[in-house]
Simulated assay, not measured.
Amino acid sequence: GSSGSSGVVAPITTGYTVKISNYGWDQSDKFVKIYITLTGVHQVPTENVQVHFTERSFDLLVKNLNGKSYSMIVNNLLKPISVEGSSKKVKTDTVLILCRKKVENTRWDYLTQVEKECKEKSGPSSG
């Protein structure tokens, strides 16, 4: 019984990309901090966790975590951020994204413009 290789070897790089929808966020005077829980993320190589910032958005890509890729794209941030000042930290089972506020000491009531519009639409409209 010879088991001939059928040539169905899936390349590891593909796998499918999972969209991250659960996150928490917090803010200080200088930073808006986004917490994303990903079990085992601290075990992948640092270069597998990539965050790309623009003034009003960021996107996170985590490659090869449990054989999958995870992505989170946040567009239309409520206020502009400083791309150079923004960074990420990987903690146990958590990715922390630090968005540097372009204007310090401003309070963000929402993380994104969309969230603001949704919340304000559904609220009691005065006038």
Rank of each mutant, 00 (worst) to 15 (best):
G1C: 15
S2Y: 15
S3P: 15
S5E: 09
V9N: 15
I12Q: 15
T13C: 15
T13I: 15
T14A: 14
G15D: 12
T17E: 10
V18Y: 06
V18R: 11
V18W: 05
V18T: 10
V18G: 05
I20P: 01
N22G: 13
N22K: 14
Y23L: 11
G24W: 14
G24Q: 12
G24I: 14
D26W: 14
Q27T: 03
K30P: 00
F31H: 01
K33R: 09
I34D: 02
I34H: 00
I34N: 01
I36L: 03
T37C: 11
L38A: 02
G40W: 08
V41Y: 04
V44W: 05
V44K: 02
P45A: 07
P45V: 06
T46Y: 14
N48G: 08
V51Q: 02
V51W: 04
V51A: 04
V51S: 01
V51K: 00
F53N: 01
F53S: 00
E55L: 07
E55D: 06
E55S: 08
R56E: 06
R56A: 05
R56D: 04
S57F: 07
F58Y: 03
F58A: 01
F58E: 00
D59P: 09
D59H: 09
D59E: 12
D59C: 08
L60S: 02
L61T: 09
L61F: 11
L61S: 03
G67K: 08
G67W: 06
K68E: 10
S69I: 10
S69K: 10
Y70W: 12
M72L: 10
V74K: 01
V74M: 04
N75M: 08
N76L: 07
N76K: 01
L78M: 09
L78Y: 13
L78W: 04
L78K: 03
L78D: 08
K79T: 05
P80S: 04
I81P: 00
V83E: 00
V83K: 03
V83Q: 02
E84H: 03
E84K: 07
E84C: 12
S86T: 03
S86I: 00
S87H: 09
K88C: 06
K89G: 07
K91M: 08
T92R: 10
T92F: 14
T92W: 11
D93M: 05
T94L: 12
I97N: 00
L98A: 04
R100M: 09
R100H: 06
R100G: 02
K101M: 02
K101S: 03
K102R: 08
K102A: 06
K102L: 12
K102Y: 05
V103M: 12
N105I: 11
T106F: 09
T106R: 04
R107T: 15
R107S: 14
W108S: 00
D109A: 10
D109T: 11
D109C: 07
Y110F: 06
T112M: 02
T112A: 02
Q113H: 13
V114S: 05
E117Q: 10
K119D: 07
K119A: 07
K119G: 06
K121G: 13
K121P: 00
K121W: 12
S126G: 08
S126N: 11
G127V: 10
